[in-house]
Design a protein around this nucleic acid. Sequence first.
DNA 1: GTGGTCTAGACCACC
DNA 2: GTGGTCTAGACCACG
Lengths: 128, 128, 128, 128
Amino acid sequence: MVHIDKNSSRAYYEQLVLGIKEDILHGILQPGDKIPSVREMAKQLLMNPNTISKAYKVLETEKVLVTVKGKGTFVRAIEETPRDEIRVQELKNDLNELVIEARHLQISQEELVQWIKDAEKSLGGHSS
Amino acid sequence: MVHIDKNSSRAYYEQLVLGIKEDILHGILQPGDKIPSVREMAKQLLMNPNTISKAYKVLETEKVLVTVKGKGTFVRAIEETPRDEIRVQELKNDLNELVIEARHLQISQEELVQWIKDAEKSLGGHSS
Amino acid sequence: MVHIDKNSSRAYYEQLVLGIKEDILHGILQPGDKIPSVREMAKQLLMNPNTISKAYKVLETEKVLVTVKGKGTFVRAIEETPRDEIRVQELKNDLNELVIEARHLQISQEELVQWIKDAEKSLGGHSS
Amino acid sequence: MVHIDKNSSRAYYEQLVLGIKEDILHGILQPGDKIPSVREMAKQLLMNPNTISKAYKVLETEKVLVTVKGKGTFVRAIEETPRDEIRVQELKNDLNELVIEARHLQISQEELVQWIKDAEKSLGGHSS
DNA sequence: GTGGTCTAGACCACC
DNA sequence: GTGGTCTAGACCACG
């Protein structure tokens, strides 16, 4: 499942956050599943437990995971959570910036739309 | 024109880079136009000249601006630059991540596509 | 390895950029190697960390180094990067100007070609 | 003859210096020819006389031109001047740096040599 | 420990 | 006037 690219300029914990989100969308992780403990994940990925812990915390505040004290950390169903309009706005903003970049790289609107469709296809229909 | 949000987590110079790119796509800045000098822009935005300079340099390496020592900094025509496939690939990757985020925020594919169309519309047809 | 000539008219950071490139071609620095940290290099060369940082950043945009925040800066494999035709053109232009200078200094074509062969020889075959 | 590219990042006076050297090698300017006065050249090129003057001064110290007070500025024969070994060394150094750049841009030795031959060919045999 | 950002202020070359 | 370089020193995020 999750794989950390040590040469990426992206922070490890961010790669982990993204990787888990991707696994959920792929259906590799299902709602209710228990994910490995911080220590175990740290062993698997050869990383510092602090880094894993940070990723889990982020995913908790984003309501992707729930930690039950003494039991472990679990995947939450996406539908459980109301759409967070603040983060939606941020994402929309990010997309606007991406479109500006795209135009400067001479990428057409059609191409962008195609990219989205490709991305969605590769994720499969597990969330709909 | 450009406005810097001092509360944004994004670096000032990156906001400036993006703002200038946006102004170009909006047609507010046209190829050949002289943009405000480093010192003047610094005064306008209440920032340090070094920060402005950094933004201008980034835009120069991205072939968006040309700077002539002793004369000033000027807008370059977008068509002058061949598509940089490395950066295109990076952008595609960013978009993939954005799509993952979107799914977790329960944003549909259709909505994303609509956002892109809205973004492109607001930029106008100045580059096509 | 790298040495900065404080009397040179060339900017310190440019000398550093060139020196690192040379070390890579000489095989002193190998792909994957970690280069000294900004602060350490600054100490070694008796320079300001900002200046070192600038050199590293240039080398990163030129795809010679990769930097991972919190970990350090690393040498990238040359073959990873596709040939940048814009920079190739600029270099060709520089060479044209150099040939003009050479003629005025009464340096023959044969001599120039010999210089190139000498230069290549001293760099060794590490990239071929 | 000489043409100044206002968009080039190279200083005007340097472009002029190079342009005149090129014209000499092309045979457009012959030894003994009188070149236009500073004022006239300034008018022709729509530039500041100071800039022209600086270029002429550089060419004088490089022994490419001679100024005879009250008569004007004249082209000198290349052979008149002994080879300036200091500048030859500098040029050799520049070429070394250029070779390093070339290697990083994945340009082969053969290609560089071909470029030199092309450059020499375009200059013609006027100096030999 | 690592690099990234930002400010402040100095000096230089070009126009 | 313009941008470019360099220093000094502060603060932040990542591991």
